[in-house]
Design a protein around this nucleic acid. Sequence first.
DNA 1: CTGAAAGCGCTTACAG
DNA 2: CTGAAAGCGCTTACAG
Lengths: 342, 342
Amino acid sequence: MVSAVQGAPRDLRRRTTLADVALAAGVSQSTASRALSDSPLVNADTRRRVWEVAGRLRFRPNHLASSLRRGATLTIGLVVPDVGNAFFARALKAAQEALKVGGYHVLVIDSDRSPEGERAALDTMRAHRVDGLIVATSGGYEDVGVPVVFFDTVPEGNGVSAVAMDNAGGVGQLVEHLARVHGHERIGFIGSEGSVGRERLDGFGSALARAGLPARPERIRLVDLREAEVAARAAAHALLALPEPPTALVVGADTIAAGTLRALRDADRRVPADVALASFDELVMADLLDPPVTSLDRHDAELGRRSAELLLSALHDDPRAAPEVHRVAMALHPRRSCGCGA
Amino acid sequence: MVSAVQGAPRDLRRRTTLADVALAAGVSQSTASRALSDSPLVNADTRRRVWEVAGRLRFRPNHLASSLRRGATLTIGLVVPDVGNAFFARALKAAQEALKVGGYHVLVIDSDRSPEGERAALDTMRAHRVDGLIVATSGGYEDVGVPVVFFDTVPEGNGVSAVAMDNAGGVGQLVEHLARVHGHERIGFIGSEGSVGRERLDGFGSALARAGLPARPERIRLVDLREAEVAARAAAHALLALPEPPTALVVGADTIAAGTLRALRDADRRVPADVALASFDELVMADLLDPPVTSLDRHDAELGRRSAELLLSALHDDPRAAPEVHRVAMALHPRRSCGCGA
DNA sequence: CTGAAAGCGCTTACAG
DNA sequence: CTGAAAGCGCTTACAG
């Protein structure tokens, strides 16, 4: 049976409360509470009886009341730049699964990739008295007074726990592959703004240097991730219009790769024959694209899961445990777009 | 500045409470409360003073306490089969945005596509005293006693509000296009289990009949969405191995399309020359696939947004308003995989 | 316009 | 092992 939106008047069908259970079980509210929390302080028969009555009356303890009283909500706040994005959606899913094991639930708020949005999200988290936070920051982070684990980004400062990809190392692998294996010397880069983008950009610079290639500022473009596909398309067109256009492109995100592929198609450039392409993020269904796009392996779920685990250990084990920064190593997955394969 | 995971001992840095604000502002707690809720019952000067003090002390009202007292949490529960899935992730994002306007926050729980997971999710929602629910059911729904809007699925029974795609009509368009425009007579179907899958399957049957084509049970396969890509690949192989294999395939989801494309590639079938393909859901970056896949347009965000709006109106306007079922009409987006285009 | 007091539904010292 | 009572931090009749 399914409830109508109209439902019954709130007042009549009062929810059953602990007092109701205690009354029906013929014990005090204290005892009922202890019985239901499986306290050893309660007689086995009493416990059984209380549980039985609670079941019969369909008692669901009011989480608000118990949280208020105990000063803990068993709720974790997750702040992400964009829940609709595949990376964050999958990380969320994995974090949620890991937190469920510890009995925690998740309040997710989307910061919309803006510092103000993030501050508003953190405000709400504070009002909801979350026990801990997992934050992929867009630059608006401020202390909420509960344990935090950052993910995706690693903010500057000490005493911070974080789980992030090895951004610089990952981009390095892409550049190295294009340079060493495929002999490219004019490599362009389309990246993103923000701290993750900056790490990837830095990685690009260092990798060029290591490969003995000149750094040419005009071959670098940064886009706003809020409009990545469109902006990347424009950026790619700009790179193709250079007097000496790049023969290979490294792009800093899957959405940027999509925009870039469209630009290459607009401009009738074959990939990889005319321009090679390698993307940091693996594209969804990368193997089915035309051409399949070379990228680093994804670690969406792993990042989510590990952040959750780190937070759980901060919450449970030793609250003063040394903060840890985990960098997830990235592995290259060559496909046709860089020039590999058939 | 960024907080360490260790943080300060909970006991010392007590959060500032309404009583603190009242004390510092030299008013009673009642007046402080009224001032902060912008009640007209309070003197303008008093109000200003209280606000000023609250700001200075960085007062954040405890949402648990006010929810407990007022009997409303301003929180909406969203139950989805799989938050990591693009459709649900985007619908979630849109629902969240629409609910934010009404001052509501969202507690999301993943049911993992199982009735038990859904029941557990609903139990948690009840414990958290959400004010309303948006549910994409996996078959475990039971009344929680708050207004509900279903989305994606339309449960049987009266008095239910729901927003869903026109599943039967959508599949009908795909079949009709393959039959009428491209002349296919042997059309296979790979769909999914569950109520949405059933509607799409039914739509397939009716559309075949309308097109005057025979219904051949062996040309139909249903897969479990929890392993859609793998299962669809196997199902497609099975269809290709039939004595009279289909010359065109209609698939009931984007993930099924992905598995099917891989099977066609395994079997060296060209698309659309050997086998045409049309998918219900648009694939991510559909235009960049090899080949671009014909599908219906996506309405992820629209479904999320409209569910949220329906719930808001049930919550605010008239609690006894007649339940509404919205069916979103689907539009065909022909691409190369069905035989259209260059 | 303001304040003292009750109460939302729990949990947990405290006293037996 | 059990119960009476206090209290978590708010909001809101009720009385002035």
